[in-house]
Design a protein around this nucleic acid. Structure first.
Ligand code: FES
Ligand code: FES
Lengths: 152, 152
DNA sequence: CCAAAACAGGACGGTATTGGTCCTGTTTTG
DNA sequence: CAAAACAGGACCAATACCGTCCTGTTTTGG
């Protein structure tokens, strides 16, 4: 089906929520209530995002989470990498040779890179700031944005 | 980890192999031998690709498979859709309302589309023809025009 | 100084999806 | 009519994911 994990999905919802109300600080229970995402999940996800330096946390009774950078400087690619691990869309991207049995005879090796780049590039082209804007011209910042250049 | 399934991975290898030697017809055992992919898998995948009209098959003793269209008209997106199902990168793309619990309060709804489009677009931008070319300047054939702005 | 609220960091099991094999047809060649 | 190859599924084993829970540690404020 080719989809990202629910963790990343949730993560984007949470971060968007946070970005739309930037400045303030939100606790996990608070975010869970507002997004209707089960609290344990919210908690788990936020913790991961802190470790990846996309959020900063404040402990204690009046604790909570806030964005670590400006919305414009957090991309969807960042979020997905943080929550689902590196964007290794195809199998043979590891730079370590020998990891793939094909290697010697494989005619696509280099092309995997190409595909990975394309996807990564597309995801890097979308920031949290973009996601908070209600998308004025419907779906058409694509051609002008990243990703199109891949094609020529 | 965000990767496509092995089926799609294999599929791309197989199709690239086929595209590089277009015109001819290859049997499943033949392809299995040349790509070192287990025969049952090869068979399974090729059958799927036939159903999706990306390959044409010929039965009988001297049977085999050949591309259904020109390499330039088969995109990586086609292959992935055929083998892994529709590219529904995020959860809430179904146009049928009610499929998501968030719906009412969700501020990202429209943005899922944006993300999906970006990924799909990127994958539609790569054709089999591209994959058969050994990619001259390493990963930098981005702006069709030779070595202009890349720099850095 | 202590209790409550919130973050930190893992461990854990149930479930869905995938990867891979195999079996039983049907079509074609010679 | 036998062999080679495609067609179409059924079928498990392993894996990854989703979601929960438990045991700390830090901060607030009475
Ligand atoms: S498939 Fe692994 S190197 Fe090509
Ligand atoms: S998350 Fe489903 S509609 Fe927004």
């Amino acid at each position: 089906m080719l989809r990202m994990t629910k963790q990343a999905d949730y993560g984007i919802v949470l971060m968007t929520h946070l970005a739309a109300r930037a400045g303030r600080q939100f606790s996990a229970p608070e975010l869970a209530a507002e997004t209707r995402i089960p609290l344990p999940m919210v908690s788990k996800i936020l913790k991961l995002l802190v470790r990846e330096d996309l959020l900063v946390s404040h402990r204690g009774v009046k604790g909570g989470y806030a964005l670590a950078r400006a919305p414009r400087q957090i991309t969807v690619a960042d979020l997905i990498s943080a929550l689902d691990g590196p964007i290794a869309f195809t199998e043979c991207i590891e730079d370590t040779p020998g990891s793939c049995s094909q290697e010697g005879i494989c005619g696509v090796r280099d092309n995997w890179q190409r595909i990975n780049q394309a996807v990564r590039h597309a995801l890097e082209g979308i920031t949290l700031a973009d996601l908070t804007q209600p998308l004025a011209s419907p779906l058409v910042q694509l051609g002008s944005g990243r990703g199109a250049e891949l094609r020529a």
